[in-house]
């Protein structure tokens, strides 16, 4: 879908990206992570030409991005940012309809699409369609920001620390929402963050960037189990490295299937092991019944299954 080959970018004499090679496949949830100043945001902005690369080649759907006019390529990519940037003088409806209007959709189709998106983002369309952004909470505003990015059904969704300014509850809600949207639509998502837990939770592949170079690019589990070097280990946080490992594995992978004798507590098969361990510690139970999607017991998880 998007391929960087030998891409470099400098501001004057200050080099921000050096010889970057990266291929982002269709349907991937690719999280670019790094400290501030690492160049992760610049990589994102190179894709929709908010920044221009100095050398190398960036291809989008097989074509060099400079063969498009910047506006054309931007309208094919959804874009959501930390400061949200809703138009304060437009209603929610008009904000969401921004790109479809630029693309000249007819109003009937736009109206249907707005309803669809507000429902997708779990927002009450009737109540907020005609509201103005300042009448909404920060979490709601960013939901609108995401809806606006998805409005014209873009091939790619670019998200620059979209949940960085939200309170923890709103952030978790939106993380769950975007993960669900990714599963449901199969969109290619390129997501920038500096929050490793967010990256582990959302990514199908994590791209760790430092000083404009890729340090490691791998699925979350691989990054955790085989960190490329000490920098990655430091970034993952040495103290709770083990807990992070648990957070990328599900209960279903470690449980003893078929052992259905009821235990003192229960946990969903799709929950992660970190959650299961936390529950065991909190309740003092050494084993938990594992429940399937309809609540039936499908197996048992012992403490030794986690630690062993």
């Amino acid at each position: 879908m998007i391929r960087f080959s030998g891409v470099s970018k400098a501001y004057g004499s200050l080099s921000v990206i050096e010889g970057l090679d990266l291929e982002i496949a269709r349907g991937e949830f690719c999280v670019l992570i790094g400290a501030s100043g690492s160049g992760k945001s610049t990589v994102l902005k190179l894709i929709n030409r908010l920044e221009e690369h100095d050398s190398g080649e960036i291809r989008f759907a097989g074509e060099e991005i400079r063969s498009f006019r910047p506006e054309v390529i931007r309208r094919r990519m959804g874009y959501a940012i930390q400061s949200i940037g809703l138009f304060p003088h437009w209603t929610i409806e008009d904000n969401v309809a921004t790109v479809p209007r630029l693309l000249g959709w007819d109003e009937l189709r736009i109206g249907r699409r707005v309803d669809e998106l507000l429902a997708l983002l779990d927002l009450d369309a009737v109540r907020i369609r005609r509201a103005y952004p300042h009448q909404l909470s920060g979490g709601q505003q960013q939901r609108i920001g995401v809806a606006r990015a998805l409005a014209a059904d873009p091939d790619v969704l670019l998200m620059d620390e979209p949940f960085g300014a939200l309170d923890p509850i709103a952030r978790e809600g939106l993380q769950a929402e975007i993960a669900r949207i990714h599963r449901a639509t199969g969109k290619t998502i390129v997501f920038v963050t500096h929050d490793i837990d967010e990256a582990l939770k959302l990514a199908t592949r994590i791209v760790l960037i430092d000083k404009g170079r890729i340090v490691q690019a791998a699925p979350p589990r691989e990054v955790l189990s085989a960190p490329a070097n000490d920098f990655v280990r430091d970034f993952l946080g040495r103290e709770d490295h083990g807990l992070k490992l648990l957070s990328v594995e599900t209960v279903a992978e470690r449980m003893r299937a078929g052992e259905t004798a009821p235990a003192n507590g229960s946990i969903g098969a799709g929950d992660n092991l970190r959650h299961a361990l936390s529950k065991m510690i909190a309740t003092g139970a050494k084993r938990l019944s594992v429940t399937g999607s309809s609540g039936e017991i499908v197996g048992t998880l012992h403490l030794s299954d986690i630690v062993g």
């Binding site: 309208r75 874009y79 670019l158």
Partner: peptide, 21 residues
Amino acid sequence: PRGVVQAARGMGLTERQILWR
């Protein structure tokens, strides 16, 4: 607000559209 301009540009509004709209 800067974020508004950045978002507008990122969504593919031209500079002229950003000015007038």
